[in-house]
Simulated assay, not measured.
Amino acid sequence: MTTFQFTLRLDRELSEAEEDAIEAGVPEVHSIEGGLGSTDAHVAIDTDSFADAVTAVVWKIEATGQRVVGLELADLVTLDEIAARVGQDTELVRARATDVDAGFPATSGPAEWGLYPWPAVSAWFRERFPGQQFELDQQGAVADLVLRARSLADIDHRARWARLLTV
Protein backbone atom coordinates (compact mmCIF):
# COMPACT_ATOMS: atom_id res chain seq x y z
CA MET A 1 0.00 0.00 0.00
CA THR A 2 1.01 3.56 -0.66
CA THR A 3 0.08 6.70 1.23
CA PHE A 4 -1.36 9.24 -1.18
CA GLN A 5 -1.70 12.88 -0.17
CA PHE A 6 -3.76 15.41 -2.10
CA THR A 7 -6.20 18.25 -1.65
CA LEU A 8 -9.79 18.16 -2.83
CA ARG A 9 -11.48 21.46 -3.63
CA LEU A 10 -15.13 21.81 -2.67
CA ASP A 11 -17.46 24.17 -4.49
CA ARG A 12 -18.12 26.61 -1.63
CA GLU A 13 -17.16 27.66 1.86
CA LEU A 14 -18.61 25.26 4.39
CA SER A 15 -20.31 25.99 7.67
CA GLU A 16 -18.74 24.68 10.85
CA ALA A 17 -21.41 21.96 11.02
CA GLU A 18 -20.62 20.85 7.47
CA GLU A 19 -16.90 20.73 8.24
CA ASP A 20 -17.67 18.68 11.36
CA ALA A 21 -19.73 16.25 9.26
CA ILE A 22 -16.79 15.71 6.88
CA GLU A 23 -14.32 15.29 9.73
CA ALA A 24 -16.63 12.73 11.38
CA GLY A 25 -17.45 10.79 8.21
CA VAL A 26 -14.21 10.99 6.27
CA PRO A 27 -11.26 10.05 8.49
CA GLU A 28 -8.85 10.41 5.56
CA VAL A 29 -9.40 14.19 5.65
CA HIS A 30 -6.81 15.52 8.11
CA SER A 31 -7.62 19.23 7.79
CA ILE A 32 -10.11 21.57 6.16
CA GLU A 33 -9.48 25.16 5.07
CA GLY A 34 -12.13 27.52 3.78
CA GLY A 35 -11.87 30.88 2.14
CA LEU A 36 -12.43 32.84 -1.03
CA GLY A 37 -15.65 31.00 -1.83
CA SER A 38 -14.34 27.44 -1.67
CA THR A 39 -13.06 24.86 0.80
CA ASP A 40 -9.96 22.67 0.60
CA ALA A 41 -10.00 19.23 2.21
CA HIS A 42 -6.47 17.92 2.77
CA VAL A 43 -6.32 14.14 2.44
CA ALA A 44 -3.92 11.34 3.36
CA ILE A 45 -5.03 7.81 2.49
CA ASP A 46 -3.38 4.39 2.21
CA THR A 47 -4.50 2.44 -0.86
CA ASP A 48 -3.09 0.46 -3.74
CA SER A 49 -3.80 3.08 -6.41
CA PHE A 50 -4.21 6.82 -6.72
CA ALA A 51 -7.47 6.43 -8.64
CA ASP A 52 -8.91 4.30 -5.82
CA ALA A 53 -7.75 6.87 -3.26
CA VAL A 54 -9.39 9.80 -5.02
CA THR A 55 -12.59 7.91 -5.80
CA ALA A 56 -13.03 6.64 -2.23
CA VAL A 57 -12.59 10.05 -0.63
CA VAL A 58 -14.74 11.88 -3.21
CA TRP A 59 -17.57 9.41 -2.58
CA LYS A 60 -17.29 9.84 1.18
CA ILE A 61 -17.21 13.64 1.02
CA GLU A 62 -20.11 13.79 -1.41
CA ALA A 63 -22.07 11.40 0.82
CA THR A 64 -22.05 14.26 3.37
CA GLY A 65 -23.88 16.44 0.84
CA GLN A 66 -20.89 18.41 -0.43
CA ARG A 67 -19.63 18.76 -4.00
CA VAL A 68 -16.01 18.13 -4.99
CA VAL A 69 -14.91 20.22 -7.96
CA GLY A 70 -11.13 19.80 -8.21
CA LEU A 71 -7.91 18.18 -7.01
CA GLU A 72 -4.45 19.52 -6.30
CA LEU A 73 -1.17 17.81 -5.48
CA ALA A 74 1.12 19.56 -3.01
CA ASP A 75 4.21 21.51 -4.04
CA LEU A 76 5.91 20.66 -0.73
CA VAL A 77 6.30 16.91 -0.32
CA THR A 78 7.67 14.37 2.14
CA LEU A 79 10.06 11.59 1.18
CA ASP A 80 7.11 9.16 1.15
CA GLU A 81 5.26 11.41 -1.28
CA ILE A 82 8.37 11.74 -3.46
CA ALA A 83 8.66 7.94 -3.57
CA ALA A 84 5.00 7.64 -4.61
CA ARG A 85 5.40 10.26 -7.32
CA VAL A 86 8.58 8.80 -8.82
CA GLY A 87 7.55 5.17 -8.38
CA GLN A 88 10.50 4.21 -6.21
CA ASP A 89 10.95 2.70 -2.77
CA THR A 90 10.95 5.25 0.08
CA GLU A 91 14.27 3.95 1.44
CA LEU A 92 15.93 4.43 -1.96
CA VAL A 93 14.60 8.00 -2.12
CA ARG A 94 15.76 8.60 1.48
CA ALA A 95 19.26 7.35 0.57
CA ARG A 96 19.40 9.72 -2.38
CA ALA A 97 18.20 12.64 -0.25
CA THR A 98 20.80 12.03 2.45
CA ASP A 99 23.74 11.44 0.08
CA VAL A 100 25.60 14.76 0.38
CA ASP A 101 27.33 14.18 -2.98
CA ALA A 102 24.08 13.55 -4.86
CA GLY A 103 23.00 17.20 -4.91
CA PHE A 104 19.45 16.36 -3.89
CA PRO A 105 17.36 19.51 -3.28
CA ALA A 106 17.33 20.81 0.28
CA THR A 107 14.22 20.81 2.41
CA SER A 108 12.00 23.83 2.27
CA GLY A 109 11.70 25.45 5.68
CA PRO A 110 13.14 23.85 8.81
CA ALA A 111 14.81 20.49 8.12
CA GLU A 112 12.74 18.81 10.85
CA TRP A 113 9.60 19.42 8.79
CA GLY A 114 11.03 17.12 6.11
CA LEU A 115 9.28 18.96 3.27
CA TYR A 116 10.96 19.17 -0.12
CA PRO A 117 9.97 21.50 -3.00
CA TRP A 118 8.44 19.22 -5.64
CA PRO A 119 9.46 21.36 -8.65
CA ALA A 120 13.14 21.12 -7.60
CA VAL A 121 12.87 17.41 -6.78
CA SER A 122 11.20 16.54 -10.09
CA ALA A 123 13.86 18.55 -11.96
CA TRP A 124 16.58 16.65 -10.05
CA PHE A 125 15.05 13.29 -11.06
CA ARG A 126 14.59 14.36 -14.69
CA GLU A 127 18.24 15.45 -14.89
CA ARG A 128 19.61 12.20 -13.45
CA PHE A 129 17.04 9.82 -14.91
CA PRO A 130 16.18 11.03 -18.42
CA GLY A 131 12.77 9.82 -19.46
CA GLN A 132 11.59 9.62 -15.84
CA GLN A 133 7.82 9.52 -15.84
CA PHE A 134 5.86 11.14 -13.06
CA GLU A 135 2.74 9.05 -13.29
CA LEU A 136 1.18 10.46 -10.13
CA ASP A 137 1.48 14.00 -11.49
CA GLN A 138 -0.23 12.86 -14.69
CA GLN A 139 -2.95 11.06 -12.76
CA GLY A 140 -3.44 14.10 -10.54
CA ALA A 141 -3.95 16.29 -13.61
CA VAL A 142 -6.47 13.80 -15.03
CA ALA A 143 -8.34 13.58 -11.70
CA ASP A 144 -8.51 17.37 -11.47
CA LEU A 145 -9.84 17.67 -15.03
CA VAL A 146 -12.42 14.93 -14.48
CA LEU A 147 -13.62 16.52 -11.23
CA ARG A 148 -13.84 19.94 -12.89
CA ALA A 149 -15.69 18.50 -15.90
CA ARG A 150 -18.21 16.60 -13.80
CA SER A 151 -18.89 19.72 -11.75
CA LEU A 152 -19.85 21.49 -14.98
CA ALA A 153 -21.97 18.67 -16.40
CA ASP A 154 -25.63 18.44 -15.55
CA ILE A 155 -26.25 15.48 -13.22
CA ASP A 156 -28.56 13.90 -15.83
CA HIS A 157 -25.76 13.86 -18.41
CA ARG A 158 -22.85 12.62 -16.27
CA ALA A 159 -23.34 8.96 -17.18
CA ARG A 160 -23.29 9.84 -20.88
CA TRP A 161 -20.10 11.83 -20.51
CA ALA A 162 -18.51 9.08 -18.39
CA ARG A 163 -18.69 6.77 -21.42
CA LEU A 164 -16.15 9.04 -23.10
CA LEU A 165 -13.53 7.84 -20.59
CA THR A 166 -13.95 4.26 -21.79
CA VAL A 167 -13.64 4.93 -25.53
Rank of each mutant, 00 (worst) to 15 (best):
T7H: 02
R163L: 10
R96W: 13
M1T: 09
G70I: 01
A21D: 15
R12W: 00
A74H: 07
S122W: 08
R67G: 07
A153P: 02
E135T: 14
W161G: 15
T55G: 03
L92S: 12
S15N: 07
E19A: 06
S15H: 11
D154N: 13
R9I: 14
S38N: 07
E19H: 03
Y116D: 03
Y116M: 03
R9V: 15
G65E: 10
E62Y: 13
A120V: 11
G131C: 11
E16C: 07
V54I: 07
T3R: 13
T78W: 03
L14S: 08
Q88D: 04
V93C: 02
T107G: 02
G65N: 10
L8Q: 11
R85M: 09
F4Q: 03
E18G: 04
L164D: 15
A149K: 06
E23S: 09
I32Y: 01
T2P: 02
A111G: 10
A21L: 15
L71T: 11
V68H: 01
H30L: 06
G131L: 12
D156P: 08
F134Q: 03
D101F: 12
S38E: 09
T98L: 11
R158S: 03
Q133Y: 04
P130F: 08
A56G: 10
D156Y: 14
D156C: 07
L76K: 08
K60N: 10
Q139S: 08
D156N: 14
A143F: 14
L73Y: 09
A162T: 10
E72K: 12
